[in-house]
């Protein structure tokens, strides 16, 4: 019997939870705020779904309801991607070692 591809995706998902678990525990507590802002930025990779939704269907009929929801999701995700990465960058820039 063939294995359902869903099982493969589930495997990736569960293994990624484990990776996340170990990687996040090794994050230094002083960087917990940048951790939140960067996870925020990367979770906006949901823009992938938004782009597919926006460009779905006929080239001529791109203003159907489903496309419009896609367009709206693109704006939201884009705010998050740029905002999230840039604010993280701005914060990380501030962490400096003692000048010797």
């Amino acid at each position: 019997m063939e294995i359902d591809p869903f099982i493969f995706r589930l495997s990736i998902f569960i293994l990624s939870i484990f990776i996340g678990y170990y990687v996040v525990w090794s994050v230094t507590p002083s960087l917990h705020t940048p951790l939140m802002s960067v996870t925020n930025a990367i979770s906006s990779v949901i823009i992938v779904g938004a782009i597919i939704a926006a460009l779905a269907g006929d080239v001529e009929k791109i203003f159907e309801t489903s496309n419009i929801f896609g367009f709206l999701a693109i704006i939201l995700a884009a705010v998050n991607i740029f905002g999230g990465f840039l604010v993280t960058q701005r914060m990380l820039q501030m962490y400096k070692k003692k000048k010797k």
Partner: peptide, 14 residues
């Protein structure tokens, strides 16, 4: 989508 699944798991556990 693998990228979304991996990211979701990372962010969720974080």
């Amino acid at each position: 989508n693998t990228a979304l699944i991996i990211t979701g798991a990372l962010v969720g556990s974080s």
